[in-house]
Design a protein around this nucleic acid. Structure first.
Lengths: 211, 211, 211, 211
DNA sequence: GATGAATGAGCCTTCATTCAT
DNA sequence: AATGAATGAAGGCTCATTCAT
């Protein structure tokens, strides 16, 4: 009984410590960059010993990889659960852009850590594409598929790409990299989405044309 | 990697050496990252002595700043000279997206160096915005202004933002960061531009409707 | 040069290591000068890692300061305990000169390190005066005070100064700086002290005059 | 004629430049120490090119040696010319101490440069002894010899040593190294000299004893 | 298993020296 | 001959990693 408890506790502790280290690393890598962050600082912020970074993750960059792997596995595509599909394709596109733009902003810390590494490491770049972006794109594509009668297949992909591109730029690049105002960028994203989506407005009976 | 210098030894030519160092640093920072690049490697690639980095630029990061400053000053907005304005707004939008997407690809090395630093340094982020992005956006806005009778002012800004966002994602992010195929991405950008621009198609007499 | 450490490796013993580093630094600074001594050499002689110099003392010059501080705090004025006061003032002066001359010789290593720094750093010069020289002078003054009936107050200070001046020159300057023979210099100091002290010979009854 | 003039001028220039470099080095070595002084600073202060240090003196330490050699050769023992011998031995000792104490103070810059080097370099220490101190001691001894009837030979040497020891301590060590007040130290030197010299007071007829 | 003190390879930087101009 | 730009060896310091406790 004691042994079990002890084992359990040890396991629990390890899991807790691992998470603490990953969280601390995530924060510090994002704000100072990977190489400028010292292992000592990570350990201090996580509240445990420096040596654990090497015991658990082998090395500083092992911790980085663990950080990425963890996020990738956490990544849950909750689009369907949390966001009801809109009534029209036009509305759906606008709503997707808004949703994804917000999500990119929420993900900014992870992206700040990941992107600069992906610049340098082709494998990492492809890993992110495969595990994160591709899955999201697929989820978006599925939702759009609801409207397939108003959306030729060859355009469906383009719309999905449009959504994630606009979300990335106005949800992450502009506010995070270039320090532009978050709200304004979200607004811009919406205006652009509106113009883009207009193309897919279903003509109401008796009205035609651009206006 | 081939040395970026022509053959000279102990020749006095500050201008040439500065350029060689900046070029070498640009290549190495882009491919390995700033901190992973050793000053010795930069000097070796530039074909001159390590000490010159400090004589000319004060420090390794001084060289980085010089690199950024140089590019910013070189940045010439040659949109008008090289790319004739299209006949219609729709065509102009499509052509601008294509042009800017290519340009982003051409700038990939500089962006690979700059962006990760901008992640960490707010001032640098704003500097880039002001000196590079804002100027280009302005140039695009001016061209679009040619079509102001077909483009309400509030949409003009959105269109300009759309152009540079799509160009950044499909000209740089996707092919460089995520190592996706350059050509395919350019195509996707064009498709998206097409859909977007369609919104601004001037109705020809006797024909209406979505198609 | 023989390593100044006993055999240990990766043992945790900060106190021992600090002492080993200070001792090694003391030896090397004295024989080669501060700047000519490499931190690597100090660490090698102390038998520990270079990094410890910076962990313990912050920097090479921090080690120098620690060295000085340590000696200053060690400095014990044991004049009274080890050297009985002589019967007469004349004898006391002679004996003090001899004692202090020897002590200067014993301190030669520390002085070789300290003096050249005091040349350049006013604060250090005053620190040494205050902590080391002034205290010794005071101790000498107290002993001389035993003979106050034969020594007018205004001369007491001069005698104390005489003692330390002669000790410094013939115990340190001549043998250490100018590499003159130690014994001969001690002899010279004694002769000078004899002449000087003669002034304070108490006239024995029935005999006067110079002899 | 032109050639002669030109040659003359060149020679003159070289001599002028050498002196300028030696003077600049002397100042800087004294105030910052030998290694902390950069050749560039010396050249700047001397108002000529860095390369000349190596052309004229081979190296930075060559310049130091030249500085020492020059001073040594300049050293003129002008004791006899400038300072008349006193009437009595007692007065002569007091006056010699005062004179030499002042001279040490005047020499402080040179000593600040030389002594720390002599700490490290035995040959230099002996060179200084031989060329500077020994010569002065000899000059002093000669003057004292004037009073040989009142001064046994074995004491003569001790008196000469006393003079230079007291002069060194109160003219240089105390005011320069320990930053003590110059005037006070000169006074102390005089008091000590007075006590010491008293020993050699010639008894006036009809009066004996200590007073 | 956890801790954090000890290690030492490696890098940026300095600056005496060299040499093209 | 004079200049000062270029060179590159060398050293102080950092910090990921190791390992005694």
């Amino acid at each position: 009984m004691i042994a079990v408890h002890s084992t359990y506790k040890r396991k629990r502790n390890r899991a807790v410590r691992e998470r603490a280290l990953i969280l601390a690393a995530s924060r510090l890598f994002a704000s100072r960059g990977f190489e400028a962050t010292k292992t000592r600082e990570i350990a201090a912020l996580a509240g445990c010993a420096e040596g654990l970074i090497h015991r658990y993750f082998n090395s500083k960059s092992g911790l980085l990889m663990a950080l990425i792997r963890q996020r990738v596995s956490q990544e849950v595509i909750d689009l369907h659960e949390k966001l009801p599909v809109a009534a029209t394709l036009e509305a759906e596109i606008v709503q997707l852009v808004d949703w994804e733009t917000r999500r990119m902003w929420d993900e900014r810390e992870f992206l700040k850590v990941t992107l600069p590494r992906a610049f340098l490491d082709a494998r990492l770049g492809r890993l992110i594409t495969r595990t994160t972006l591709a899955r999201r794109a697929e989820a978006i594509r599925q939702r759009l598929n609801t409207f397939k009668e108003h959306l030729p297949q060859h355009e469906l992909d383009a719309v999905a790409e449009f959504v994630s591109a606009i979300a990335f730029v106005f949800g992450f690049s502009r506010p995070v990299i270039l320090r532009q105002n978050t709200e304004e960028n979200r607004h811009t994203a919406n205006v652009i989405a509106g113009i883009f989506a207009r193309r897919f407005r279903q003509s109401s009976p008796g009205r035609n044309g651009r206006n």
